[in-house]
Design a protein around this nucleic acid. Structure first.
Lengths: 343, 343
DNA sequence: TTTGTTGATGTATTCGTTTTCATGGATTCC
DNA sequence: GGAATCCATGAAAACGAATACATCAACAAA
């Protein structure tokens, strides 16, 4: 109904008897413009509720103020935390976040990249899929002069800055915590050997054992393929069948730990007294399961914030050099699944 | 490095010795243009990898192809499902989704609306906060000629189309399911009386009781304020203290059901044999808890898809009339927490 | 031949803002 | 008194695509 055409600079100029350029400059308090003129224009603009046409501005500046964000999965506690952080941080500088998901398929990831390119984002944040071993589709952004930052799941060989969690430290502190609880036979259900994050956690695990004179035993190791609850359950059953079963399990992720808990409950084995458990990622479910699950928090929100902040710095100042790798520390969140009552 | 300036229509026109307008029209196969010319231009464009400058196009058409999406909480299983659906659907038509969250505060919601307005979205999808009883900030979009659709949590009095879940039916089928299991004393932990969804579920609950000649008893009703696990636990304890405790509980949400389960486990009461439980929303946790939780699925993904589809239809065709209210049916997902073994 | 019609293309304007490059008056300097 | 220097402003040209309107040839109808 109120078909009021939007007020433009031209309207202001005409009404005030000045030129469009003066109006434009006055609004940004350009030093060339007289103080009174600036006041006059600003007052007029405020009174008539002038708001610059952002589409025109973006066109003029050839930018969109949109930042692309590609994650493997959107309906996922960790990633939605990251998204939440990036949106909040981007908003502060007037940027928007466009989210897309790869479903952990390379093909979808490539499509997502193309879509982002087509909607002409100013820059890209990406956490790669499990299938991504080559980053040509990502490098295209660089070719177009659009900065890119990788986060969490990264392709190490890509010459693109990275924001990651210190998985090594996380693996170390999870394992050390179990050692501190008096555990001697600590198993590890790991992720795929070709996924970087998983390897780092494994390294942390090994280092912690080593630092405390506990021998590493291959029989206490299993590798997940799909990082599922079912795998956790199955591997735990295998561990229980060993002549000398472990007294603790460090799991690559909370979901796997859930499977482990299920297997132990089925056998009537008490957690943590007989077997202590630590997960990784600190998902919502860690609070929810019983017993509640000790886990490693990855500061997803913070990761989103940091990644966006660096990208925007680069966007606003071409000369800004994004640090090559930024590692966030993890945090051990102790809950019931790992704390042995002191005898 | 490759500082290749982007190919524009002007370049094509010059190289081909035609005018810019002919080039433009040829690319969209305008009927005025000769077939050979169309072919020639298209071939050239394909060969030189011409991609129209979307920022210029959007400017010319005064649109952004961005759709705003405001939810109470982003890190939330149901809402991220909705987001996932809307993003996927929007992508099909070349639209982007800009997500923002209100944290269930009115003030944040207003800010989010302003941000959306400032980034000049073409339309808005919104699920209101718990504090929103007045929609002036939402009507502003209508004033600006930008279509709006409410979804899930809606303000009924707002003259703005709504996509909702049939909460009444959900409440009814949850209750009926418990009745079918042979339960006679069915309690309901409800939501706030001033929240529409909660009331509808309550109505469905009452109707189901009534249809099966079970008297409604106020003593079996509790109202949550914050819809928390703690409330579920506390109210369940209150129920247990009754002279004649319920043999089933229908909870406003899965999280509340979780609290109920916790309370029952503490008391050593068996689920579902002594007390059966049904939740609502079918969050991830429903599969995870033990016993797994019977719940009502709200088809979040589908809701996102539908809402976006209608908004886009309106955007592409001003004359399209969005139906005033679209109700999606719920689905009862039966799990262990409610199925009594037949004696 | 003249007029009308159609088909294919070109010209010019527009969208709203920013920015480069004048312009012209006032002041200062020699 | 003329040149140099400011200062404040305006005029105009971008940015890239879409489009209303103009042109002009070829051909058909009269």
């Amino acid at each position: 109904m109120s078909e009021r055409r939007k007020l433009t600079l031209k309207d202001i100029a005409k009404d005030l008897g000045i030129s469009v350029s003066t109006a434009s400059r006055a609004l940004k308090a350009h030093p060339d413009i007289a103080q009174e003129t600036i006041q006059m224009v600003k007052d007029y603009a405020a009174k008539h509720n002038y708001v610059p046409n952002i589409i025109a501005v973006n066109f003029r500046k050839s930018r969109t103020k949109n930042i692309g964000l590609i994650v493997p999965e959107l309906v996922h506690h960790f990633f939605s935390t990251v998204i939440s952080g990036s949106i909040d941080e981007a908003k502060k500088s007037g940027y928007n976040i466009l989210v897309s998901q790869s479903n952990d398929f390379l093909a979808d990831e490539i499509v997502a990249c193309k879509t982002m390119m087509a909607s002409s984002v100013d820059g890209l944040l990406i956490s790669i899929s499990n299938e991504t071993y080559d980053g040509d589709h990502i490098l295209e952004f660089i070719d177009e002069g659009k900065p890119v930052i990788q986060f969490d799941k990264i392709l190490e060989k890509l010459p693109v800055p990275k924001v990651i969690v210190d998985d090594f430290e996380g693996g170390y502190s999870a394992t050390k915590h179990l050692i501190d609880q008096g555990c001697k036979r600590i198993a590890h259900i790991a992720g795929r050997k070709d996924v970087l994050n998983a390897c780092e956690r494994m390294k942390g695990y090994k280092k912690a054992l080593n630092d405390h004179q506990i021998p590493f035993k291959e029989e206490y190791i299993r590798y997940c393929e799909s990082i599922s609850e079912e795998e956790g359950e199955q591997f735990m059953e295998e561990f229980l069948a060993l002549p000398n079963p472990p007294d603790a399990v460090f799991c690559i992720t909370d979901l796997v730990a859930l499977g482990v808990i299920k297997a132990l409950k089925n056998k009537g084995i008490s957690i943590p007294d007989q077997i202590a458990i630590v997960g990784f990622s600190n998902w919502k479910l860690a609070e929810i399961v019983s017993p509640s699950l000790t886990s490693i928090d990855q500061h997803g929100y913070q990761m989103g914030v940091v990644a966006v902040r660096m990208l925007i710095q680069k966007l606003e100042d071409k000369n800004f050099e994004i640090p090559d790798t930024l590692e966030l520390k993890t945090r051990l969140v102790i809950r019931d699944s790992s704390v042995k009552v002191k005898a």
